[in-house]
Each structure stands twice: as structure tokens, then as C-alpha cells.
Design a protein around this nucleic acid. Structure first.
Length: 288
DNA sequence: AACGCGTGGCC
DNA sequence: TGGCCAAGCGT
């Protein structure tokens, strides 16, 4: 019996009621949720997504908004370049695709900020297309249940996609449900730190559990530093710009970080990234 | 291929 | 407490 036979009924019974999963969610709504969920937990995305969809229910509506509004609406979700990319993608969809989110993986992947995962997620969850969806949850579930490894290790894009394609049910609807169920399993049961194998619908056929749940001993990505990094400084600077209703002078930014050299470098990088602008009078603001 | 990119919560 | 983690992408 295939994995999906145990997984799909489990998902149907216990799936979290997330707003972007509700019937009637448009492909645009799915796409917005996928952008926001890139490296950001569900709990922080929910309220921002609700507000975002109310304000900008179609790509053309977002495209018409000033970047400053978009960045403020993004708030503290993190990685604000995602907000700019979503804004750019919305403009492309409005201009080139008739305000309709593409349903085809290649067309989706051509959009700014849309990589392999997001393209496939939109095609599968937004349009019900049959295509493999590979995210960190899916990779971990496959590593454990199929390969008997405690963790997935570094991504191997082609091989990971091939693994999941092999597991994908034949029918379109079943394929999409299988994919979201794999992600749900990885998110709530087959978690990175403390998997809840007792509650797992596929524990009977899990290769990792069968092997006695051996600890992962493969290569691990070095943990990211944050304190004192440019990433933290950029966040502080952007926080000042977001919180101010209008332009701020350099002194306000100077107060955000005491190392002048690092501060200046980070401010420059924000300008280069289009996350900030300098006005003719020398003051700084979120981009128009 | 490995690294930079925000933010906050959790054990 | 602080390292680790959270539906990745672009370079």
C-alpha cells in the first residue's frame, strides 16, 4: 500500500484550519501565503496574510501600491526582500499574464522570488496540478520514512524531486492532497527536533523507526549567526524607517546601531536592494 | 555549492 | 541561556 493511502485520510481528519487552505482561496491567495511562509512560521503569517488579502485581493491591486505600503504591511515577517519580490511578481502577473497567476510551473518559476518550491506549491495547491512539491518538511519525511535517515541533510534538488515524484499518486486531486499532507506531517508530527512518532500515520512503515530511530550523523549546515551581523543591523535600520510615518534624518538611523562603519555599509545595501531611499534633502525613507 | 538574507519562539 | 528552527530564493 502506498504512503498516500495512510497519509491522505490522516490529513483529512487532522489538518489545521489555515486560512489559505479554506475553499475559495484564489491561486493569488495561495501564492501570497507561499511567499510569506518562506522561512517564517505559520503563526506569524496568519494575521498578515488576512490583512494583505483584504487590501490587495488581486495581483494588480498589489502592483498599484507603493513599495512603502507593501513593506509596512509585511511588517516584521522578516526577509523583507520577499515583499519586494512579491510586489514585482504581482506587476509581472498584472502586465503579462492578464492579472491571472500562471498555473504552469515554468511560467511560475520565471517570476521574481518564485523558485522550485513556490512554483510547485502554487501549481499544486492553487490549481490542483499534479506536480511534486519539495520543501524542508517533505525532505525530512522522505529521509526518515523512506530512506531511514534521521534527517535530510543538504538539499539534492534533482534527487529530492525524483524521490517525491516517485511517491506522488496518479490522480490530480490525490497528488495535491498527498503533497500538503506530507508537509503537514513534517510540520506537526515528523518534526525536526522531537518527532511525535506515536501520532504518526505511517509509523508502521517508517524505515527510520524500523531501524531504531538512529541519530543523524551526516553533514549539517553551520548554524546562522545573527547577533551583530549585517542582517541584524539592516533589520534595525528598516525598523526605524517602517515605524516612522515620514522620512527620517540620518541621526535617527545613527541611533539604531553604534558601529558607524557597519551602519553605513548596511544602509548602502538597503538602498541598493530597494528597501530604502534617500531623498533630495538627504533624509531617508521607505521607497515610494 | 555555500552563503547571506529577518525575526521571534522554543526547550 | 542560546543554539536551533521555521512552507526558500538568488547569487
Amino acid at each position: 500500500m502506498p504512503l498516500s493511502a495512510a497519509l491522505i485520510p490522516w490529513y483529512t481528519a487532522v489538518a489545521r484550519d489555515l486560512p489559505w487552505r479554506r475553499p475559495g482561496t484564489t491561486p493569488w491567495g495561495v501564492m501570497v501565503s507561499e511567499f510569506m511562509l518562506q522561512q517564517t512560521p505559520v503563526s506569524r503569517v496568519e494575521p498578515v496574510w488576512q490583512r494583505w488579502m483584504a487590501d490587495w485581493p488581486a495581483p494588480s491591486a498589489l502592483a498599484a501600491a507603493p513599495r512603502a505600503d507593501v513593506l509596512r504591511a509585511w511588517g516584521k515577517l522578516g526577509y523583507p526582500r520577499r515583499a519586494l519580490r512579491l510586489h514585482e511578481a504581482a506587476a509581472v502577473i498584472a502586465d503579462i499574464h492578464g492579472d491571472v497567476v500562471p498555473s504552469d510551473v515554468d511560467a511560475l518559476e520565471a517570476l521574481p522570488g518564485v523558485g522550485s518550491y513556490t512554483a510547485r506549491a502554487v501549481a499544486a495547491f492553487g490549481y490542483g496540478r499534479r506536480c511534486a512539491v519539495v520543501d524542508t518538511n517533505v525532505r525530512r519525511v522522505v529521509a526518515r520514512a523512506v530512506h531511514g535517515n534521521g534527517d535530510a541533510g543538504p538539499a539534492r534538488v534533482k534527487a529530492d524531486l525524483a524521490d517525491v515524484t516517485e511517491l506522488l499518486p496518479t490522480g490530480e486531486a490525490e497528488a495535491a492532497t498527498f503533497s500538503i499532507a506530507m508537509m503537514e506531517l513534517g510540520a506537526v508530527v515528523c518534526t525536526a527536533r522531537t518527532p511525535h512518532c506515536i501520532a504518526c500515520p505511517v509509523r508502521d512503515r517508517c524505515a527510520w523507526l524500523a531501524a531504531g530511530a538512529p541519530a543523524y550523523d551526516g553533514p549539517r549546515r553551520a548554524p546562522q549567526a545573527f547577533a551583530g551581523t549585517d542582517r541584524q543591523v539592516r533589520g534595525r535600520l528598516l525598523d526605524v524607517l517602517r515605524d516612522s510615518p515620514g522620512p527620517v534624518d540620518r541621526a535617527a538611523l545613527d541611533r539604531a546601531w553604534n558601529d558607524a562603519g557597519q551602519r553605513d555599509r548596511c544602509l548602502d545595501s538597503l538602498l541598493v536592494d530597494g528597501l530604502a531611499e534617500q531623498l533630495a534633502d538627504g533624509r531617508f525613507a521607505l521607497p515610494a
